[in-house]
């Protein structure tokens, strides 16, 4: 009874990017929330501007004529439709992709995204103030989580689902490396007990921003060190946002695309992802730190960009042969730091 169902290259690309944009929205909402809730007194501007640095948006921020204040960063990410990395702009892009995907995705996926998008275009400035901001972030996170749940429960799992997963996983891994990178810069090596305690609080917030605080408490030793946080976020394959788990799942998705659907274009991407995994999973974190964490994260980010580009070249490119020659045709703000 089955009809052979090939997947249009354009749909595969749309799924990949819809997932990426939504993952970005969720991460951003979480970062804003954590920044607000745990901002260190006296360092407000620094902690808010860290958001801009995590997203490598310094140039875009300056171009919008903004100066680094808590208010301007909030505006830039929550209200500014002209900032392509803002939540409204990412949601707009996700919905546009969903619109082209309507023949393929479930009606429930489309409807939820359609309504969610409409709600988010109506964020009022007052919602950025005081206790309302945290509730707003909660609504945004829940919006994406509802999408994820509906997708999990209703989206048919043929090859399209694997492209959707790949987009989500690449974005998620990328966000985790950025979060870690920027905090690592902020937190210089310890000197004195008081400083060390303050830093551990800060490190706890890093894990919080990745939604891993309580799991980390369970697995980390009582007197944890920054190295334990790094190990958790990079190599712990039980943690949903760890780079290691994301990369392992990417490899599985690519393998499935080749085995189940006979997609031969997966070769380059699979090699890249195998390399990535080998450099992460099972590698002692002390060695990563000794070799330079920033350099390591930089390399992971650039590998993820390459991976996305290889997937794009292998599977998405054909439908627009006249495109700009970039695999990542919807890419924005993905330049390595």
């Amino acid at each position: 009874m089955t009809r052979d169902t090939p997947l249009l290259a354009r749909y595969a690309e749309g799924l990949f990017w819809m997932a990426r944009y939504l993952e970005r929205v969720e991460n951003l909402a979480r970062l804003v929330d954590v920044t607000q809730t745990f901002e260190s007194p006296g360092h407000e501007i620094e902690s808010w501007f860290a958001l801009v640095r995590i997203n490598a948006d310094e140039a875009g921020f300056a171009k919008r004529g903004l100066i680094p204040t808590a208010e301007s960063v909030k505006f830039f990410y929550l209200l500014d439709h002209d900032n392509p990395t803002s939540i409204p702009a990412s949601l707009e892009a996700a919905r546009t992709n969903a619109r082209t995907l309507r023949p393929l995705i479930s009606t429930e996926m489309w409807t939820q995204l359609n309504v969610f998008h409409r709600d988010m275009t109506r964020i009022a400035e007052a919602e950025l103030q005081g206790d309302r901001l945290s509730r707003l972030c909660g609504r945004i996170k829940e919006g994406v989580q509802a999408h994820t749940g509906i997708t999990d429960g209703t989206f048919f799992r043929d090859q399209g689902w694997f492209f959707y997963q790949l987009g989500r996983l690449i974005e998620r891994a990328d966000q985790t490396t950025r979060l870690l990178d920027i905090r690592y810069h902020l937190l210089m090596p310890a000197a004195g007990e008081e400083r060390r305690i303050a830093e551990l609080t800060q490190w706890g917030n890093v894990v919080r921003a990745a939604a891993g605080y309580h799991a980390f408490r369970r697995v980390a030793p009582p007197g944890f060190t920054p190295a334990d946080v790094v190990a958790f976020l990079i190599t712990d394959t039980a943690f949903p946002r760890s780079v290691g788990l994301c990369v392992t799942q990417m490899e599985w998705c690519l393998t499935q695309l080749r085995r189940r659907y006979g997609l031969r274009g997966t070769v380059a991407a699979l090699e890249r992802v195998e390399d990535l995994r080998a450099g992460i999973v099972g590698r002692p974190v002390e060695q990563i730190i000794a070799d330079g964490l920033h350099e390591f994260l930089d390399r992971v980010q650039s590998d993820l960009i390459q991976l996305a580009s290889e997937i794009g070249t292998a599977f998405f490119r054909d439908w627009r042969p006249l495109a700009d020659g970039q695999g990542q045709s919807q890419s924005q703000s993905q330049t390595a730091a």
């Binding site: 249009l8 290259a9 354009r10 023949p103 492209f163 659907y261 274009g265 439908w319």
Partner: peptide, 23 residues
């Protein structure tokens, strides 16, 4: 599939659609 013009290509006087697995 709902296709747009860019999803289709004509070669050897046949119509093909561009998919992840080729034409």
């Amino acid at each position: 599939p709902l296709v747009e013009g860019a999803d289709l290509v004509v070669e050897d006087e046949r119509v093909w659609m561009r998919t992840t697995g080729g034409r």
